[in-house]
Each structure stands twice: as C-alpha cells, then as structure tokens.
C-alpha cells in the first residue's frame, strides 16, 4: 500500500492505496467525489478528465499514487466560490451543451484548459481540442456553441459557418 497526500479542490486529503488504484478510483471511492465519471476502459472517452497541477489529464489513466503531493481539481471544484456556476458552466447551461450529463464534467474540464491556452478559439480549434471527449447526446453542436460563448465570441450560426 502507498500512503498518499494531495490537495483536491484546495483541500488536503490523505489516503492509502494499492499500486493499481487509479486516480479516478481514489476520487470516486475514497473521497466520494463522484462527479468524475468512467465511460470506458481504453482511455478514450474523456469522462474522467481532471486537472493535475493545472493540466488536463485522464484520471482513469493515472495511478492515484502518482498524484501524491500534487494539486488535483475535479468538476466539484469548478463552480464559483459562492457555489454559482462559473462562466464555462453557465455557458453550457445557457446553450444546452449537455443532455444526460455524463460526459459533461470531462467537457468542462477540457474547455477550461482550452480557453486558458487559447482564449478565442475558432470552431475548428474547439473541435480538435475535444478529440478525446466523446459525447453521445448532443452531437457536439451546443458544446461548441457553449465554449464559443464562454470565450466571449459570437455564437450565431452565420459566424461559425463563415470560418
């Protein structure tokens, strides 16, 4: 067993895990942070995205013991301090960027680092960045719209088609 300690959503946490315990298992089972989801077992769907030291990673493709000493942010840590939706989350609600909600945490985590690195992404930029996030409900249309809106850009269809 490995004794581990990390900061999750700003809070110090500790645990004892097997070598094989995945970060997502530690988050979901030990910390009961069930917002991070598991949608596949081949590291492809992106439902489990979290930030480790500010960078987006798949919590299903990293061992919990590797996060020892690091800062982890999950979907539960994304809302504003007063509990209201942050800009990206609000844009997802405003533009109906989610249906069943299962892929949504991963989408929000990905959108967050995208907009940090590329504050005014094009439609193509967004679609390329989301290559590792599968959504089965929305057809991506409203996710793209939501991220566009969160970046402060026009989201009407004409603007997108003109690219």
């Amino acid at each position: 067993m490995n004794d581990i300690k990390m900061k999750v959503n700003g809070r110090e946490v500790t645990g004892s895990v097997e070598g094989r315990t995945l970060l997502v298992e530690f988050l979901r089972n030990d910390l009961r942070l069930t917002g991070t989801h598991v949608g596949c077992d081949t590291s492809q769907c992106g439902a489990c995205l979290v930030h480790v030291d500010g960078e987006v990673v798949k919590a299903c493709s990293m061992f919990a013991a590797e996060a020892d000493g690091r800062e982890v942010t999950t979907i539960e840590g994304m809302a504003n301090a007063d509990g209201s939706l942050n800009t990206i989350q609000q844009a997802f609600q405003d533009h109906h960027g989610l249906q069943c909600g299962f892929c949504t945490p991963g989408m929000v985590m990905a959108a967050t680092t995208l907009l940090r690195d590329n504050p005014k992404p094009s439609e193509t930029d967004i679609r390329e960045y989301l290559d590792g996030n599968i959504c089965r409900c929305t057809g991506y249309h409203n996710i793209v719209k939501a991220i566009m809106a969160a970046s402060g850009q026009e989201v009407d269809r004409a603007a997108l088609a003109a690219e």
């Binding site: 009961r32 989801h37 539960e76 809302a79 989610l98 909600g101």
Partner: peptide, 16 residues
C-alpha cells in the same frame, strides 16, 4: 443542468 455541471448528479455507480 445545475447538478450535472457541478458534479452533483447521482448516477447509479455513484450510489454505494
């Protein structure tokens, strides 16, 4: 959407 966007949804696997 509020619960889904904040990780507060309650899917079956979230139930223990």
């Amino acid at each position: 959407d509020i619960r889904f966007l904040t990780g507060a949804g309650r899917y079956s696997d979230d139930i223990n």
